[in-house]
Each structure stands twice: as C-alpha cells, then as structure tokens.
C-alpha cells in the first residue's frame, strides 16, 4: 500500500501546501475539460459500474485535484467505460478520456516509482 511513498496521516486535515500534482498536470494537459465539473453528480447517478459496486466517478476529478493518487488507483479500475456519464454530463466533460488518462498516468507513475 505504501508503494507510492505515502504514509498514513494521523490528522484528517489536508495539507494543500504540498500535494502531489503529477497526475493533475498530466490529465489537465491532455483533457482540460475535467476542470469544468460542477459536481452535479449525474455521472455517478447513471454509472453502470456504480450500479454494481461503490464507485463514485464524480469524486475522481476531485481526487485528481487533491493529488490523492493512492485513492484514485484503488477506484479507477471499477469503471467499465460504457459512456453513460459522457452522455449525461451537463458540462460536456469528456469523461472517458479523463478515465483513460488517469489509468495511464497512474501506470506511468507506478513505473517510474518502481524504477527508483
């Protein structure tokens, strides 16, 4: 679990002073639309995977912005890429690209950390 150089923190307070922005800058560069999310939750409501298991696709964009890579890597594999979220998104976010980029970004981060 601690592969990515994380330690569990005692306090629940988030320190935005030093968060991990590797994934944020990667996703933002390739799919900036994820920034315009207004957290309406329509994607989570319609989600085919969310129908079967506890999975909140809306929170992914929040997790990227907060640099919570560990949490993301546990969540991201639940998505089935069915595309319903893209169809209901009132902001026109290209959600499936965001998912694919998170997957790729995490795999790259894992690779580089394994090398070090």
């Amino acid at each position: 679990m601690n592969k990515f150089g994380f330690t569990t923190q005692e306090s629940r307070a988030i320190d935005y002073g030093q968060f991990d922005d590797r994934l944020l800058s990667y996703v933002q560069h390739h799919e900036p639309t994820f920034l315009i999310c207004m957290s309406c939750g329509a994607c989570t409501a319609t989600c085919s995977a969310g129908n079967l298991i506890d999975f909140n696709i809306r929170r992914l964009s929040l997790l990227i912005r907060r640099g919570e890579i560990l949490q993301l890597s546990n969540e991201i594999d639940k998505c089935m890429l069915c595309g319903k979220c893209t169809l209901v998104c009132p902001r026109g976010i290209n959600t499936r690209n965001v998912i694919m980029l998170i997957k790729k970004g995490i795999s790259q981060i894992k690779q580089s950390e394994n090398q070090n």
Binding site: S39, C40, G41, A42, A45, G50, N56
Partner: peptide, 12 residues
C-alpha cells in the same frame, strides 16, 4: 429516479 446525493457522495 436516479441521482447522486452529492453531499453524502452516494448514488441514490
């Protein structure tokens, strides 16, 4: 109806 209760973060 389907929605997300975004304040509790769970589909509803």
């Amino acid at each position: 109806i389907k929605a997300e209760d975004t304040l509790s973060g769970r589909p509803l």
